[in-house]
């Protein structure tokens, strides 16, 4: 990752944003991810909220649901990537069809994780994302 910041310990740190319309899922992701270098800067319940949050916090890593009200994940990914090409986005969705996955990847996502997921699956996907 190109634009990590140095934190107090001299380790690189990344700002994490979680986008999911389910409060439960947002907390689940926040709780389950085990990366010290990831610091949650905010969570958003839909695409519009996510863009707003992005402007304020400039996150480096994003987990993104697809099916959300107001603005769906696909659209949101495209906008985020346009504003910050180096951003890393992990799609976390129950949509298991390939076309959705390809579409998300094409818009600029960097990884794809199917719901439901285990903690291990989530952490592996994030590790892969930050590699």
């Amino acid at each position: 990752m190109s634009n990590g910041r140095m934190n107090g310990n001299g380790k690189r740190s990344f700002k994490l944003m979680i986008v999911d319309d389910s409060n439960l899922m947002r907390r689940r992701i926040e709780r389950s991810q085990q990366f010290e270098e990831l610091q949650l800067v905010g969570t958003a319940a839909d695409g519009v909220e996510a863009l707003e949050l992005f402007r304020r916090t400039d996150p480096d890593v994003v987990t993104m649901d697809i099916t959300m009200p107001h603005m769906d994940g696909i659209e949101c990914i495209a906008r985020l990537v346009a504003m910050k090409p180096a951003i890393r986005i992990l799609v976390v969705s129950a949509l298991a069809d390939k076309a959705t996955a390809v579409e998300a990847m094409e818009r600029g996502a960097n990884g794809f994780l199917n719901k439901p997921f285990t903690d291990r699956q989530l952490n592996e996907a994030i590790a892969e994302l930050m590699r």
Partner: peptide, 25 residues
């Protein structure tokens, strides 16, 4: 999870339905 509010319950069955829907798709 330690939030057992009404909203969280709704989220949870929503996620189950989401998974069923994803599988079906």
């Amino acid at each position: 999870e330690n939030d057992f509010s009404h909203e969280t319950m709704r989220d949870l069955v929503g996620e189950v339905a989401n998974t069923i829907s994803g599988n079906a798709r």
